[in-house]
Amino acid sequence: MKKSLLTAAFFLLAAVMPVLSAELPDNSLYQFEQEWTNQYGEKQSLESLQGKVRIFAMVYTRCTSACPLIVQAMKKIEQQLPPEAAGKIGFVLFSMDPKRDTPESLRDFVRTHGIGKDNWLLLTSNQDNVQELTAAIAFNFKEAADGVFIHQNTISVLDAKGVLVHQYPNLEDAVSEAVKGLS
């Protein structure tokens, strides 16, 4: 039921998209023509994320130390948002490991970390898209030889049109400042 509602929402968004994209600012991340796959196995363009403020981070599902902390911080932000803001803000996790992350491993990650269903998207794609996205947001990461990633812990905020408006390189700051900014 929820799933179909969400799908409907995406269709709705997709319907208004051409109008919206004409207005996309020059520096919007939604200028990228990229296709990603969400945890439900559905393909969606980056552009389709517009219309909501998006709080997002780069993670990979095999990550055992840093990524859970990132998710925890984002969940804290979600919990502390005032009710009237809650529906206008979405949470997105992009995979930096598209070779290994499938919709299935994304769903596992959702279960393992108790991530909410309504307001969260987990997206995986290909190396090229990941590289473009991370180059644009100045996110540095590196795959170590054993399939473990060395990466920054950054939570970023996009406005409704996909313009990067904030980056928090420190998770504690991210919670307090994002909540303050969004309330």
Binding site: S65, A66, L69, Q131, A138, F139, N140, F149, N153, P169
Partner: peptide
């Protein structure tokens, strides 16, 4: 992959870099 070089902005609390 120019951005695979370790970088810190000095505020990261728990970066693995």
């Amino acid at each position: 992959d120019f951005n695979s070089v370790p970088k810190s902005d000095g505020r990261s609390s728990s970066s693995e870099f």
